[in-house]
């Protein structure tokens, strides 16, 4: 079909970061739906609270220490996470490798603290509805934490192989970092609800 103009795209790059790439949009999509899930769970919490005359339903609020330490540690982890994303964009593979090792270690440590959190909720999930909902909130967030830590560890292994130099894999590193930001920021409202609302 000779009369049709031809748009030559052979010069286009084969990978891009951020909102240029399709993967990032997929990550945003999942973040959006998971954030909706968190919001609904928090909504359910307040709904149950509004339906009972006392809160937290005859038990004492959770101990503050593990949850607060975890919160501070998570906020601190935003810093290396930020740098790893920047290293990935600038194709600094060696720095990315070190950063990911650090994040893997941090992630495992956070999971350990998280386990302690469950131990000091001071209520069981089957004690009453208050117990049920805070266990649900904490478990829901733990699922995300666990997923991203596992993902980080696998990614760390991957970046140490020959694939580590591929621009696409560095894009994966960036997306993993974006997801980590979500895991951290989504924790803050949940932390407030679990630990501070019952102390109001």
């Amino acid at each position: 079909m000779p009369d049709r103009p031809d748009l030559d795209l052979s010069h286009l790059p084969t990978a891009g970061f951020g909102s240029r790439s399709a993967i990032t949009w997929g990550t945003y999509g999942f973040i959006l739906l998971e954030a909706t899930g968190f919001a609904l769970a928090i909504g359910a919490y307040f709904y149950l609270q509004s339906r009972s005359s006392e809160w937290p339903l005859g038990v004492i609020p959770p101990d503050l220490e593990p949850g607060t330490i975890l919160t501070l540690a998570m906020l601190a982890s935003l810093v290396p996470n930020h740098f790893i994303k920047a290293f990935a964009r600038n194709h600094r593979v060696q720095a990315v490798r070190l950063g990911l090792v650090l994040m893997s270690v941090v992630g495992v440590a956070l999971l350990v603290i998280r386990a302690l959190e469950f131990a000091v909720l001071n209520v069981r999930w089957d004690t009453n509805a208050y117990g049920s909902i805070i266990w649900l909130l904490l478990a829901l967030h733990t699922l995300h934490l666990l997923t991203d830590v596992a993902d980080t560890i696998v990614l760390t292994a991957l970046i140490f192989t020959r694939h580590g130099h591929k621009k696409r894999r560095l894009g994966d590193v960036e997306d993993n970092g974006v997801y980590w930001d979500f895991v951290v920021w989504s924790w803050l409202p949940i932390y407030a609800v679990i630990y501070w609302v019952p102390r109001w």
């Binding site: 359910a44 149950l48 339906r51 009972s52 089957d126 009453n128 509805a129 049920s132 909902i133």
Partner: peptide, 10 residues
């Protein structure tokens, strides 16, 4: 759990 159980605050 007791999300929907009025007897236990659900």
């Amino acid at each position: 759990t007791h999300f929907f159980n009025p007897a236990e605050g659900g």
